[in-house]
Structures are given as structure tokens and as C-alpha cells.
Simulated assay, not measured.
Amino acid sequence: MGHGGNVISELTTDHREVDELFAQIQALPADDKNRRRLADQLTMELVRHSVAEEQYLYPTVRRYVDGGDDLADKEIADHAEVERMLKELEKCEPGDVRFDSLVTQLKTSVTAHVADEEGHLFPLLADVCSPEALEELGEKVRSAKKTAPTRPHPSAPDTPPANKLLAPGAGMVDRVRDMLSGRGRDN
């Protein structure tokens, strides 16, 4: 969740970590209780990553990349779809048919989103931003992930300024809930 480097390196590392979490979930037997812990970790990582992108990456794309509004709108719509699935996954337990179905749907959606970002959006961003600007954006993204929510909030705003104002409060509440429940701790 905070790796260093420019924004493209930071987010690409996040993508690989999410890929690994999917692989770990899918490698376990259907009724293994560790799948719940891994699904919670996956949710936490995806939500923090999405919030940070919505706060800093997509506004930059809108401002500097040709056709950036359409690109950002598509990426935000992808996030909304993933967040709805994550909310459903919270209600499922390993062994439930719906659990496996949602994990499969999430993986498909996230994989397509990642391929689009890494293959299209990141190269466009790299073409229009200086290395210094990409480094600064990486710092902002890392900072946002530290205070971002850890649970899906599908009805929360996903564009500035409302998302920048409300996400830290929701993040604080989520982290308190996580601390009290033990969610997100490696067992």
C-alpha cells in the first residue's frame, strides 16, 4: 500500500499485489475460512487504490490528457462497478456459491480495468507529465491511501471536491471498525 516512486510505478505495484490476492483466494479450497481474510484484504487494497486514483490520478488525466474527461469517466464507472461487487462480497462467506461467482466477476472486471490503465491511460499520462509531476502525483496517491476508506461505500462521491472532503472521515470510521473487528490483520 505505499511503495514509492512515481504514480505509474505506485499504481502498477498495487495492481500486481491485487493480482496476487486473487491468485491466493482462488488457490484455496472453496470452504477455506482464509478466503474471507484474503477477500477482506483484497477489498481494503482495491478501495484504497480506487479512492486515491479518484482523488488525484483522474483529475490530472482530465486536465492534461487529450480526451481525459471521457477516459476518467470510464475509469470511475469501472470503479463503481467493482465497488458494488465488493459490497456484495462483504455479505458472503467462503463456500457460498455467490462468493466464488463474485470473486470471478471481480477478477474479470479488475483485470480489464488494469489492462486499460497500464496499456492506454498510463502511457498517455507519461507523455504529458514531467517526471517530477509524476513523482509528486505518486506522493499524493500514497498519502491518500493512508487515510482512504477500507470498505466499499458505493454511494459515496467519487469526484473532487466532495470525495477529498468525505473520504478521510469514512476512512477513519472504517479503520476503527477494522481495529475492533480484527479485519485486515494477518492471522
Results as ranks from 00 to 15, higher is better:
180 L>H: 04
22 F>Y: 13
67 G>R: 07
122 F>P: 05
98 R>M: 04
92 C>Q: 14
104 T>H: 09
2 G>Y: 01
97 V>L: 03
154 P>V: 09
31 D>E: 12
157 P>H: 09
113 H>R: 10
54 E>N: 13
138 G>S: 05
123 P>T: 07
178 D>R: 02
185 R>Q: 14
55 Q>C: 06
17 E>T: 06
38 L>H: 14
8 I>E: 00
158 D>W: 04
55 Q>I: 02
42 L>P: 13
38 L>Y: 12
20 E>K: 06
149 P>Y: 06
62 R>F: 05
140 K>E: 08
104 T>L: 12
57 L>Q: 10
46 L>C: 01
109 S>F: 03
171 G>R: 15
101 S>L: 11
164 K>R: 15
103 V>G: 03
183 R>M: 07
21 L>C: 11
136 E>N: 10
133 A>N: 04
27 A>F: 04
60 T>G: 07
175 R>H: 10
149 P>M: 13
142 R>I: 02
83 E>F: 04
42 L>W: 13
31 D>C: 03
96 D>R: 09
150 T>Y: 04
127 D>A: 13
125 L>W: 05
67 G>E: 12
52 A>G: 06
10 E>K: 01
148 A>V: 02
109 S>C: 12
144 A>E: 02
62 R>Y: 02
97 V>E: 12
22 F>R: 08
82 V>H: 02
11 L>V: 00
60 T>I: 02
144 A>Y: 12
169 G>N: 08
155 S>N: 14
137 L>D: 11
29 P>F: 03
56 Y>I: 00
5 G>Q: 08
62 R>M: 10
145 K>Y: 10
127 D>L: 08
119 G>R: 09
63 R>K: 15
183 R>E: 12
160 P>T: 14
95 G>R: 11
135 E>F: 07
166 L>G: 12
151 R>Q: 12
98 R>Y: 02
161 P>N: 04
141 V>I: 08
93 E>V: 07
187 N>K: 08
87 K>D: 15
105 Q>C: 02
96 D>C: 03
150 T>E: 11
143 S>G: 08
10 E>F: 00
180 L>E: 03
78 D>P: 04
139 E>C: 05
13 T>R: 15
117 E>F: 06
88 E>K: 14
90 E>T: 07
138 G>I: 00
115 A>T: 07
152 P>V: 09
183 R>A: 15
144 A>I: 12
162 A>K: 08
105 Q>P: 02
156 A>N: 09
149 P>T: 06
177 R>H: 09
164 K>E: 14
12 T>N: 06
129 C>S: 13
121 L>P: 00
45 E>F: 05
6 N>I: 00
42 L>V: 07
40 D>K: 09
13 T>I: 01
13 T>A: 09
104 T>C: 04
126 A>W: 07
56 Y>F: 14
137 L>H: 00
41 Q>F: 09
108 T>L: 05
3 H>R: 06
181 S>A: 13
152 P>N: 11
88 E>T: 06
138 G>M: 04
80 A>I: 03
16 R>C: 00
8 I>G: 00
78 D>F: 11
84 R>P: 10
95 G>F: 09
41 Q>M: 15
1 M>C: 03
94 P>E: 00
58 Y>C: 01
54 E>T: 06
155 S>V: 11
30 A>T: 14
35 R>W: 06
164 K>Q: 12
142 R>V: 00
142 R>S: 14
137 L>C: 05
183 R>T: 15
84 R>Q: 15
2 G>I: 04
